[in-house]
Each structure stands twice: as structure tokens, then as C-alpha cells.
Simulated scan of single mutants.
Amino acid sequence: MISFFDERQLSHTPLRELHNGTWTPYAECADRARNIRAAVGTPAPARDFGMAPIEAIHDADYLAFLKGAHAAWRAAGREDDAIGYTWPVVRRRKLSLDRIDARLGQYSFDASTPIAEGTWDGAYWSAQTALTALDAVLGGARTAFALCRPPGHHAGADYLGGYCYLNNAAIAAQHAHAAGAGPVAILDVDYHHGNGTQDIFEARGDIFFASIHADPVTDYPFYWGHADETGIGDGAGTTLNIPLPRGTRIDAYLAALDSAHAQISAWGTRFLVLSFGADTFSGDPISHFAIETEDFSAIGARIAAMGLPTAIIMEGGYAVGDLGGNVARFLSGFPD
């Protein structure tokens, strides 16, 4: 399978995050991408599709904030990475705020997603990598793999969180839709719910979003991904959430995939954007499913059996030493 990556994605190097009340080394480290790259062969370079596909998903004021946040942090006399510490719980007021701390709270939802000096470049080229893989599939490839890092599915139109800054899958899906490849569906198989992707599309009826993930009653991001969230307004019926309990093994996971496949197929899908996270792995340090390395090929094969042109967008997976092998196993489930 053809794969894509850009070295500039490695420029995103935050030092630490707040996890379970403790400052810990940043889990979404650059070695994740290096290990995947080593396992899948030599990816082709990403091409630059410019800002227009990103602006089709993300608000202009959020993009301006993201580009300038680290410089503003340093200008305020701060060291290291920019990270927020206060959030508007009731509602996010759209104000012209000056202080960087206020803007970090306005445009984020957690304290695990710092903005480092190279974050904008890394996120920009992660999005371009997704668009390059998408373009390969639009051009006739059956599947293509975008080694996206940082990931994207927790990022909303105007907020960051969950290690995500630009929503690569949403950007790719919108671009495929605009190119006339649809009906387009997004299938998210990361351990954590793709809340940002859902937020972007849940009120639209033209892109279907399905997610199989850990039950948000017990797991991040908590406030999204419950089974009764099925879309709103024009998007009613175009969101599918399948939350699963901690400890889920391969048989139950494949059954959930079959359920998602049935609804994706019934919707008339002709093109699939796949948000793939390898953090469903039993050894993942921040996740709690029981998927083993040898299971990933079965998951890939079950998705490939949907028979759809598919752009695969890398999301999570934090067992760094096992990550490359798990991704390679997953991709092996797709026919050459």
C-alpha cells in the first residue's frame, strides 16, 4: 500500500502534558511517527495543497490563534510550551481576548495538548499528508495510508484537544466530498471517540460519521460519543456511535465493525475516510481494550471487505515500541 509522510511533522515536540493530575512526558511523541515509518517502509513525501482545504473545516480566527499562540506565549515572558489552565465551563464566549492564557482556554478543551514552537508546522504538514493520501485514492488507488502526526480527530472547527490541532480526517472527507467522490463516510476506529469530527459534521446530512470507541462513561473525552448521539438538524441519522466497555476483545470488536459496516453501506457510501488509531492495543499505556498485535490484520481485512476506496488517516497509539508493528499488521489486512 502506498503511504505518505512529511519530515516537518516531527517539528511538533511538546515537552510535557498534564495527565491524571501529574505532569508527564508528552505521550504523542515524534518517535511514534518514526517507528511507524520504519515499519511500513519508505513513505512518499506529502504535497502542499495550501490553506484552502484547511479553511474549509476550521474557523479563520482559530487558525490565526493556532499560528501565533506560541509566539504570544513567549512574548508574555513564558517558557517552554503554551498550555491553558482555565476554561469557560458554561459557554465559550466569542470575545476579543488579549491575554494568551484566555485565548488558550477559548480555543482548547484540555491540558494535554500544548502548543510548542513547531506545532503549527507539524499540524499543517500532517493535514497535507492526509490530503496527499486522499488525492492518491481519488486518482485511482484503492487505498492509501497517511502517516499523520500530530493526529486530528479530537480537534473541532475552532478548538484543539486530545493531542489534536487540525482535524485531518475531516479535512480529507470535506475535500473528497467537494471533489464529487461521495457519498463520503468517516469511520473512526481509535480507542477514543472522535469528538471533533462529530462536532464538525453532526448537523450536516452530507457526510456520515461512525465511531467505535471506549465508552465515554469511563473514558476520555467523556462528554461526547454516547450511543444516543445520532446527529442533529439536517444531520439527524448521520452519526453512529458504538461505545464498547473496557476489556473488549477481538470478537466483540469485529461484531461492532459489522454493525458500523451495515449502516455505512445502507447510507449509500461510495468513499471511506478511515480514522485509524492503534491505541486499541492491549499494551497501550493510556487505553483499556484487549486487542492483540495479531488481531490488527483481522480488523484491517474486515474494513477492506467493505469494498470502498479508502484513505487511511493515522490517529492515536501510544505503546511506542509496539506501534510500528501494530500499524503494519493493520495495513496488511488490505489487499495490495
Rank of each mutant, 00 (worst) to 15 (best):
T238F: 04
L308S: 07
A311L: 13
A102F: 15
F49E: 08
V273F: 10
L166F: 06
A82G: 10
W73E: 06
A260Q: 02
A311E: 10
L274F: 05
T129E: 07
D228Y: 13
E315M: 00
G21R: 13
D284I: 14
A102W: 15
F276C: 01
W73M: 03
G118K: 00
F330D: 05
G325H: 11
Y85T: 05
I291N: 02
W267F: 14
R142P: 06
I313L: 07
A266T: 05
A301R: 12
R99K: 11
Y191E: 05
H192E: 06
H58E: 09
F65C: 11
A298I: 02
A305N: 06
A304G: 10
G162A: 04
G68D: 15
G140C: 09
G321S: 14
N35A: 11
T119L: 03
M306H: 08
I212W: 00
I286G: 00
I264V: 13
F334D: 15
E117S: 08
A75S: 15
L95N: 11
F271D: 11
I286E: 00
L147T: 01
Y253R: 03
R329M: 14
G122L: 10
P14V: 13
Y223K: 03
G122T: 04
G268T: 02
A39G: 12
D206K: 13
A52R: 15
Q106M: 12
G122S: 11
A311F: 12
L63F: 03
H193A: 01
G321C: 09
A179Q: 13
T239M: 15
A185Y: 00
R92G: 06
S3T: 13
L18C: 06
F109W: 15
A328K: 15
P88N: 09
F145K: 07
A305G: 05
F109L: 08
G105H: 09
G140S: 04
G325F: 08
Q263F: 03
R78I: 01
R249I: 07
G50C: 07
H58M: 14
S259W: 02
S282H: 13
A72I: 04
R103S: 08
F289E: 02
I36L: 09
T132D: 14
V273D: 04
